[in-house]
Design a protein around this nucleic acid. Sequence first.
DNA 1: TTAAACAGTGAATCGCGGTTCAATCCTTAA
DNA 2: TTAAGGATTGAACCGCGATTCACTGTTTAA
Lengths: 200, 200
Amino acid sequence: MAYRETAQVRARKDEVRTLILEAARGLVGQGGFRAAQMSAVAARAGIATGTIYRYFPTQSELFAELFRGSSQREVDAMQAAAAAPGPCAERLAGAVAVFIARALRNRRLAYALIAEPVDPQVEAERLEYRRAYARVLEKLLEEGIAGGEFAPQDPHLSAAALVGLLGETLLGPLVKSAPSARESAADAIVSLCLRAVGAR
Amino acid sequence: MAYRETAQVRARKDEVRTLILEAARGLVGQGGFRAAQMSAVAARAGIATGTIYRYFPTQSELFAELFRGSSQREVDAMQAAAAAPGPCAERLAGAVAVFIARALRNRRLAYALIAEPVDPQVEAERLEYRRAYARVLEKLLEEGIAGGEFAPQDPHLSAAALVGLLGETLLGPLVKSAPSARESAADAIVSLCLRAVGAR
DNA sequence: TTAAACAGTGAATCGCGGTTCAATCCTTAA
DNA sequence: TTAAGGATTGAACCGCGATTCACTGTTTAA
C-alpha cells in the first residue's frame, strides 16, 4: 500500500468535477445541450476529453446531473416565493412571476430545461422536475382551495395545467414579444393563472 | 423516346408513396418516431430501404410530411368544433373536448405529435402546428372577448396558454389517471380553460 | 528513493442508423 | 421484339460524436 487518496487530492478532484459541470452549464446556457459535446466541454474546462469520463460515466449522466442542479435552483426559487406570507392568490402570483422573471433572464437555458429535445435519460429528469414545479403549485392550490380562496378543483391536475401554461407562453409568445412588452405580457400570464384556478 | 410515365405507373407510384406514409404512421402510432427507422418503415411497407429514397429525399422529409398530415387532421377536427353554432364559451368547451378525446384515442400518437423529442426539422413542423391550434383558439377568443363572453385579454397569449395547458394535462395527469376517471378529468380540464379565459 | 496506485491524455475506435449505388428487374414506345 | 428509361433492391458505406485505452505524469506511504 503506497498510495491512498488524501484530502488534497480529494479537493482537487472536487474542483475538476465542478469545473466540468460549470463548463457544461456554460455551453448549455449559450447553445443548449446540443452545443455541449464532450470535446467542447473538455476544451472549455481546459482538460482532455477522456478526463470527463473519470468523473461521469456517460454524457447522459453529466447532463442529468447538470439538469438536476439547474432545475433545482428554479424549483427552490419558486418554492421560496410560494412560501411567502400572505394570501394564497398573492403567493401564486409571486411564484409565477418568479418563474417568468428567471426564465427571461436566461432564455437559452430556459429553453434547454423546458423544451429542447434531449435523450431519454435527460427527458426523464425533465419530467421529474416538471412534477417538482407542479408539486410546489399543488400545495399552494390545496391550501387556497381549503381556505376558499380558489375554486374547488383537482389541485394535481390544475398544478400540471399551470406548468404547461407557463412553459408554452414563455417559449411561445413571451420570448417573441418586444422587450418593452414583456412586463405587461408577464402580468397577463399571471392573470391567466389566477383566473384558471378561480382566484377571487 | 421509348419510355414515358403512364397513368398506370403514376397510380402505382402514388400507391407506394401512400404505402410508405402509412407504414411510417403505423410505426409512429405504436412506438413513436424513434420506432420508425427507415429499415423498419421499409419492412412494414414491404419494400426495400432504398426505395423510400425514391419518394422522400430524407427521413426528416418523410417525418415532416407525416407530421403535417396527422396534425392537420387534429387541427381540422378542432376547427370544426370551434366553428359550431352557439355561444363562444360552449364552442371553446367543445373544441377543447374534441382535442382531449382524440388525443386519448391514440395516446402514443398524441405523445409523438406533442412532446416526443424529434430532430429540428420536425420540431419546426411541431411549432407550426402548435401555432395552428393556437390560431383556432385565438379566433374564438377574439370573438368571445368582443362579445363580452370572455374577459378582456390578449387572445394571442391566451391561446398559446391554452395549448400549453392542454398538452401538459393530457400527457401528464390525464393519461396516468384510471380510465374510469378520465371523463371527469376531461371535464376538469375544460373547466380550467373556461375559467382561464374568464368565461362568464 | 522507490514502486504502487491512481489521474490525465487525446488519438483511435466504435456503434448506429441514415444514405448511397451498382446490379437487376420492369415498363413503354417504336 | 427490342432497347431506352426508369424503378427496385439491399448490402456496403459513411459521418458523427460518444467512448475507450495504452501511455505518460503525479501522488503517496514505506
